[in-house]
């Protein structure tokens, strides 16, 4: 993948494994993508397909001692992160690359005030005095839409509503003006009206600060409204990667097709059953796999699919897919 001046993050051939008593599980295999300045990259896929593990690998936050990066590289502004010492990595975490998590109810520390949780990041990375750090934190809380921030900052997380907590999380992530923000299902635990507000806020912040955002989600509606580019993952691998509008207009992988088909549509008759993909994703601890990992569930499966794993090929500039069925022969969705 080409590296240009405005490439912030480059993940290349990332392979992440978990060493368990039962054997070694490869949770992420050969994942390659990059994030540019001001770009929102969506990563979609079912639960357990390796979306979150990919991003935990980027920051070296894999659960220890089981998790490890077996292969590949992660470069932030050209600097290799894989193999960095814990001390060096800590200077990147929360400072250059920040993360927000799925459930704001559990991701904030219930025993500490919001002030304490925000200020410690500023003191750590920016070396501000306590007083300046508090002022800075209040400014960001205000920016993410928390009214009366100077007083509210003294509250504990349980004194905020779910949406407000996620705003606090976002403010916490933005304290050090990170170049890359990883948002791991930031709206999954919130109700729909709050979801829209949070996503709108993320977009505004992107425009304002020009940071790159990785948005992990399983909600294709969110992807359509937010992302410039989409990566579709299945069983730890990237199966398709494309600019958002192209992916929606002409998906090039049967899995992407099926995902898009399972989104409920307003213009469809109410009495029809929702489309769903038969079966479950393969259990990664049963690997390694000989053929395409999606083959057992694929409606367009053919003999060649079981012969060996298809490679990720570039079909047009910026578009990749991992499928043996030639593009011309791929059935389009009804």
């Amino acid at each position: 993948m080409s590296s240009t001046a405005d490439t912030l993050l480059q993940v290349d051939g990332l392979r992440t494994q978990f060493v368990l008593d039962e054997g070694t599980v490869t949770a992420v295999d050969g994942v390659t993508f990059d994030v540019k300045k001001g770009e929102i990259v969506g990563i979609v896929g079912e639960s357990g397909c390796g979306k979150s593990v990919t991003n935990l690998s980027v920051l070296g936050l894999l659960p220890k001692p089981q998790g490890r990066i077996a292969n590949g590289s992660v470069k932030f502004e050209g600097r290799e992160l894989v193999g960095l010492s814990e001390n060096e990595l800590r200077k990147v975490r929360g400072n250059n690359i920040a993360m927000i998590f799925q459930d704001p109810m559990t991701s904030l520390n219930p025993y500490l005030t919001v002030e304490e949780q925000l200020v410690e990041v500023v003191e750590l990375h920016l070396g501000m005095s306590r007083k300046d750090a508090v002022a800075h934190a209040v400014k960001l809380l205000h920016r993410v839409g928390i009214s009366d921030a100077a007083n509210r900052i003294k509250s504990y997380p349980h004194e905020f509503s779910g949406g407000m907590r996620q705003r606090v999380m976002i403010a916490m992530a933005l304290l050090c003006d990170p170049e890359v923000l990883i948002a791991d299902e930031p709206t999954t635990a919130l109700d729909v009206t709050i979801q829209a507000q949070i996503l709108e806020l993320l977009k505004e912040l992107r425009d304002e600060r020009g940071m790159g955002i990785i948005l992990i989600t399983h909600d294709l509606g969110v992807v359509a409204g937010m992302c410039d580019r989409v990566i579709v993952m299945y069983a730890g691998r990237i199966v398709e990667q494309a600019p958002t509008h192209e992916l929606y207009a002409s998906p090039q992988h049967p899995y992407t097709q099926a995902l898009l088909k399972s989104v409920p549509r307003l213009d469809e008759a109410m009495h029809e059953h929702l489309f769903s993909i038969e079966g479950l994703p393969p259990r990664l601890d049963k690997g390694p796999f000989t053929g395409c990992t999606f083959a057992p569930r694929c409606p367009q499966v053919r003999d060649a699919c079981h012969q060996g794993e298809p490679a990720l090929e570039e079909t047009s500039p910026g578009r990749h897919r991992r499928c043996v069925v030639p593009l011309g022969e791929l059935e389009t969705l009804a």
Binding site: L59, L61, E86, R90, K91, V92, R93, G94, N95, A98, M99, F101, D103, T106, S107, L108, N109, P110, E120, V121, L124, H125, M169, M172
Partner: peptide, 15 residues
Amino acid sequence: QQDFVRTARAKGLSE
């Protein structure tokens, strides 16, 4: 194993 401990690590705090 709590999420907020993961958050604390993601902030770059020392162990």
